[in-house]
Design a binder for these strands. Structure first.
Lengths: 129, 129
DNA sequence: CATACTGTATTAATCATATTAGTACACTTG
DNA sequence: CAAGTGTACTAATATGATTAATACAGTATG
């Protein structure tokens, strides 16, 4: 399904959270789609089921998935409600990175180009190549 | 000088790296300015000198500071040379955050506004381009 | 109802890392 | 020389991540 860096200083469960979040945001996993079971994914990635569960729990806390006992873990609906608290956190991180980019010599127009490139993937499958 | 969250899951030395990097980028610490000595900062923050040194070494590896034995640690000149490898890393992180922002309902125009806001240097007597 | 899936919880052991503590050495400055 | 600086090293401790094993509860299906 994807790769993990077991040697990384970044904990496995955090890598899992990041990757799964990315897949959800990019709608590789669609709303209400079932994620791999804790045990199945653990076997697939050759890591402990507890580590998978820890990642799933974190994703649930962050609102990206919901879980039903006995059924499985599923991708949350993106309900359109603005979570201002979370937005503030993301914008704060964003500001730091933008400043660092400026420091490295990236120009504002370059960043705006990035934004344009990633703008709202509303339509169907959009993979240019 | 600044505050650390000793309870945070984020290591102290990483918090230090982030904060110092921020101060350097925003030119609170100017090029060739001397940073607090390892021992002085350790005493100031009530943490171990080794932890400070670890942060300083990391900042040196990232090119933000340079150190002279017996003299001290100093802010690097921003030499204007494009470190494309580092830029790619930052842009990659940036893309993830931008996508997450979109997912949370932030509009492209909002992000562009953030860029415009940060475009101007903090120092004061600088000029725009 | 039995079986086999699912999520969840708990405990313990192990491993890796961060942090502290103490000491030592080399260099610079006055 | 004395007092400041960075740097290196070892050891002990603390914290967190990961694994392991087990158990329990809910769901689906034949």
């Amino acid at each position: 399904m994807f790769e993990l860096d077991l040697r990384s200083r970044k904990p496995i469960y955090e890598q899992l959270v990041d990757k799964l979040k990315e897949l959800i945001i990019n709608e590789v996993f669609k709303p209400d789609e079932q994620l791999p079971s804790v045990r199945a994914l653990a076997q697939d990635l050759t890591i402990n089921p507890n580590t998978i569960q820890k990642a799933y729990r974190e994703l649930e806390n962050q609102g990206f998935i919901y879980s039903l006992k006995g059924k499985g873990n599923f991708v949350s609906q993106n309900n359109g409600v603005m979570d201002t608290q979370k937005i503030d956190l993301v914008l704060n991180e964003l500001e730091k990175l933008i400043q660092e980019a400026f420091y490295l010599g990236v120009k504002p127009s370059d960043l705006i180009a990035v934004i344009e490139k990633l703008k709202a993937p509303k339509g169907g499958d959009e993979y240019y190549d």
